[in-house]
Amino acid sequence: MPGQFVHVAASEELTLRRPFSVAGVPRERSLDLLVELRGKGTRTLAEQAEGSSVSVMGPLGNWFSPPREGATAILVAGGIGVAGLRYLAEEFVHDGRPVLLLVGARTREGLLDGLMPRPNGGITLELSTDDGSTGTAGTVCELLASHLERVENPARVYACGPPAMLKEAAAVALRHGLPCEVLLEEIMACGTGACRGCVVNTKHGYKTVCSDGPVFDAAELLFEGGPYA
């Protein structure tokens, strides 16, 4: 389901698996993952030859809620955050729901050309870059705010990206009286809720990203004082 992730054993040299959002399901028993090169785990994965096998655990975690029938789903991604929303956008299009997808990055290089959802018929795609090199100049949350001023019949905001961007997207949605679901990322050990390692602070205490999430209602999260401050 869109929002769920898989836990990948990238290398036997590592202690932990690496969680990745399901970025698409092109056919049965097949998954797309979008992997940003960040460290040893992602580099090891990228170096794998075509056809090699890795251990994949999952799908794990919860998933996004559907929007109201007929209303527009507003998806907001910061950088590699598009990985967490790509499959959702595709499913919404498949179900015939109107989708507004806003993707922002610092520069045009961060916009991950060619990795946008497919099919993209039915998706209104808007881009932003902080330096104005592509799309609207400014942050993706500023783009979100301007769209929420004029979009008809908005249903819900779905956001994925860096912590500061999620906090701002949630605040923008709230100002417009819209519910907002965010997809969170945390360093993760077990992936099953057992070890209590990947917690975030919520109004109902610490919750695990792996089993209570990774999708959270932004209104439940305590952005203050945690990594999402």
Binding site: T15, G197, N201, G226
Partner: peptide
Amino acid sequence: REGNPPPRLAETHAGLLNAI
């Protein structure tokens, strides 16, 4: 007990630090 504030995990060379 609610446990420690996050982050609670940090990977190391050949190991893992936890502060649950």
